[in-house]
């Protein structure tokens, strides 16, 4: 049994490495798709032919494409993600500075949304097809169909501009701890991300709990006279929480996308805002660095989810 788990993990690990390589290849290809060439893209439209030639010489852009890709991988392995000429900073230093701030933005809402979403989902499974079940599903539908940034503006309009309860922008301090020391300013960004995620989580949890409730062992427990609370605690929640493990891993790309929009709305200086600013001035090294980092985070999330799932549910390993 242990060897089966190990073999499964090894296989998934190898797959993840392949996909990570794929992401580097994609970033590399995109860098070469830049109209006018990557040297022109990085140095800007006013660079002279001489400057471009010198830049290509210095950065091995005149070597063969294959050789360039190998060199690119070599740089990445040494932690060299490139240099942003627009910010006059290495890409890795931008990440070291901004990534913790983005984690402080998406971390608390994820935990909160999971807890609330799971509770709502289980509640709905107990109240199936009753008014409150339909109501929660309906609200979830609307939240799901809402552009994230629009929800943020509604909350800003209501709580900041009309009621004056909360500040309309997030703390802009360069330190990530500001998110917690100035938590009042983080309530709106956190609330927006939480609401958006709850819609997905509760929907998932509801169907998972309903699925579990229809299983034979639940009927057996009911036939033996077990009480509803006991069945919920011992059987339903335990089984239904397996998909939650997967959900955490799979929700990473959505959270990162959400982070870009929220950081722009609330002017929160994390990696999302850095990416947005990079997009505005066509700062390709930052954009491709974000692609790699977000890609790596997503792949790691999927891997961790699969491994956790394999431990929780032995049937997965046989597939």
């Amino acid at each position: 049994m242990w060897s089966a788990v190990t073999a499964y993990i090894a296989r998934r690990f190898a797959q993840s490495i392949m996909i990570l390589l794929g992401v580097t290849l994609l970033a590399f290809v995109l860098l070469h798709l830049i109209p006018g060439g990557s040297a022109r893209g990085i140095l800007g439209p006013r660079a002279t032919a001489g400057q471009i030639a010198a830049f290509e010489q210095a950065n091995d852009l005149n070597k063969s494409v294959f050789r360039q890709y190998v060199l690119y991988l070599d740089h990445l392995l040494h932690g060299n993600f490139g240099y942003s000429y627009k910010l006059n900073q290495t890409v890795s230093s931008v990440f070291a500075q901004d990534l913790p701030k983005s984690l402080a933005l998406v971390g608390p809402p994820t935990v909160l949304a999971l807890a609330i979403g799971a509770l709502l989902g289980i509640w709905q499974s107990q109240r199936r097809d009753k008014l409150d079940d339909h109501l929660i599903t309906g609200v979830g539908y609307v939240l799901y169909a809402m552009p994230d940034f629009w929800l943020a503006f509604i909350l800003i309009d209501l709580f900041a501009l009309r009621l004056f309860w909360l500040p309309p922008i997030a703390p802009s301090s360069p330190s990530w701890t500001a998110a917690f020391t100035d938590a009042k300013a983080m309530i709106l960004p956190w609330a927006t991300l939480t609401l958006v995620s709850i819609a997905v989580f509760s929907r998932y949890m509801r169907s998972s709990a309903l699925d579990t409730l229809s299983r034979d062992h639940i009927r057996t427990a009911q036939a033996k006279g077990a009480q509803r609370g006991r069945i919920l605690r011992k059987h339903v929640i335990r089984n239904a929480s397996i998909p939650i493990i997967t959900l955490i891993g799979l929700s990473i790309p959505g959270l990162l996308s959400g982070a870009i929009l929220e950081e722009v709305v609330f002017n929160y200086p994390g990696i999302g805002l850095a990416t947005y600013n990079a997009a505005l001035v066509k700062d390709y090294p930052i954009l491709l660095g974000t692609t790699l980092v977000f890609g790596a985070l997503t792949i790691a999330g999927n891997l961790v989810a699969d491994i956790a799932y394999a431990y929780a549910d032995p049937r997965v390993r046989l597939a």
Partner: peptide, 23 residues
């Protein structure tokens, strides 16, 4: 399918942003 997996590994909005900037 690994090509699909690779593209799915990049958050959708970021992929859109990249493509929209380049083209």
């Amino acid at each position: 399918m690994r090509v699909v997996d690779t593209m799915l590994a990049i958050p959708g909005l970021l992929l859109l942003l990249l493509l929209a900037v380049i083209f």
